[in-house]
Design a protein around this nucleic acid. Structure first.
Lengths: 221, 221
DNA sequence: TAGATTGTTAATCGATTAACAATC
DNA sequence: TAGATTGTTAATCGATTAACAATC
């Protein structure tokens, strides 16, 4: 149930790195940027930015700041998004179909190669250029195409069984939209997105606290 | 940039409460349940469960445990989901349409009354029983129907302008799927769901740490 | 009464912030 | 050299865990 990673790099820092990277995409690559400027762009404190970056290496120059280009490159590599990820999507329902077209994925190096579903109405069809295959072909296609990541948008009842298959086919990272606690071996990583729970969080904050709530800092901040 | 709520109730506890509530939905309402049992069902430690609950009041009986029915009722009310929320969805693209049919919302007391979009192709159509109206009608319809919550699935470029309108029409809670930092007055609460960033988080964990990652604890635990 | 389990206090752990010496 | 800004150390803050007295 630990959340951090071992060498003093909090798991909480990772989405911040993503935000730093995004901010750098809007800066000119020939520029040098200070932690103070990055702070203005992202909303995180300059101290936190320096600390986050320093925990991965030495990317700045005292007295000058950080080279935009160098820092971009470093963050790409730290985040592991400097190369393509092959992704499978399982569950081509409404949400699954919508995600197949999601620009936030497509703009990046996450390549959804296949969708899987058991509905005969969907098998063989293409959504946003991604073809739907039957679940029976899942293991084989995943293994053959070096797919290490999966997006899970199946019904609750099917989730665990699908995950078992994904894992035994070699998938090691799962973005799970199903509101259920998946059981996976230790070396497999799951990131849950539970939209109902996010709404409840809003409900809570709006119900209590007639004044004071801020934007959440955990994810996008 | 604070994350907590004032009286020692961490914002981080809120999604845990949601999980406790869900677990209780699967227990018989006539039963009494111990923190130990809830721990087994949810994966959170018994100590944390007792502490979380105790910070809201006294719901248990020493020596016995918690009445499932009473705790359910208490959590419903703490989370503010014991009454209907009127919700508007803005941006009826792929993702927006998918969310209109999302069971996780529908099962609960979040009622999406209207969708809004500027695309003439969509205006007047119905998705999952929810009708699409032009953005020009947003303020009026929100104000007239006591809508306090909104789901935002518009393109990046439109997001801030739409949010301004939402806020001035009386919306105080926004579930934001747009990968952008929204500027809102202090008393408005925004919860961001940034799917690309969640994928990057997986990428990070899979890239480094050849061994040790667990399921994330922040949201679904 | 004995056993169980809460609510709470104290101890630990971890993350963020502040301050500053090192360095360009 | 003087000014700027990093990387790092120490101080603070906050959240979780452990332990246990109170109580059913």
């Amino acid at each position: 149930m630990s959340q951090s990673q071992g060498r003093g790099i909090p798991d909480l820092a990772v989405p911040r790195l993503s935000h730093y990277y995004r901010a750098l995409l809007e800066s000119r690559e020939t520029d040098v940027i200070s932690s103070e400027e990055l702070s203005r762009l992202t909303g995180y404190s300059a101290a936190q930015i320096r600390r986050d970056l320093a925990s991965f290496g030495q990317f700045g120059t005292p007295g000058r700041g950080y080279s935009v280009l160098d820092l971009r490159t470093a963050l790409l590599s730290i985040l592991g998004i400097d190369k393509d990820w092959h992704v499978a999507l399982v569950g081509a329902g409404n949400l699954g179909q919508a995600l197949l077209g999601y620009k936030g994925f497509r703009d990046q190096r996450f390549k959804v190669l296949y969708a899987f579903d058991n509905d005969p109405q969907k098998i063989g069809r293409e959504f946003q250029g991604v073809k739907v295959y039957p679940l029976s072909e899942l293991s084989q296609r995943i293994a053959q195409n070096n797919i290490r990541m999966a997006i899970l948008t199946v019904p609750v009842a099917a989730a665990q069984e699908v995950v078992n298959q994904l894992v035994s086919s070699g998938v090691s990272a799962i973005l799970n939209f199903v509101p259920v606690r998946l059981k996976v071996p230790e070396q497999i990583t799951v990131q849950n997105i539970d939209m109902a729970i996010e709404l409840e969080r809003l409900s809570y904050r709006t119900t209590r606290s007639p004044g004071s709530t801020k934007q959440d800092t955990t994810k996008q901040q």
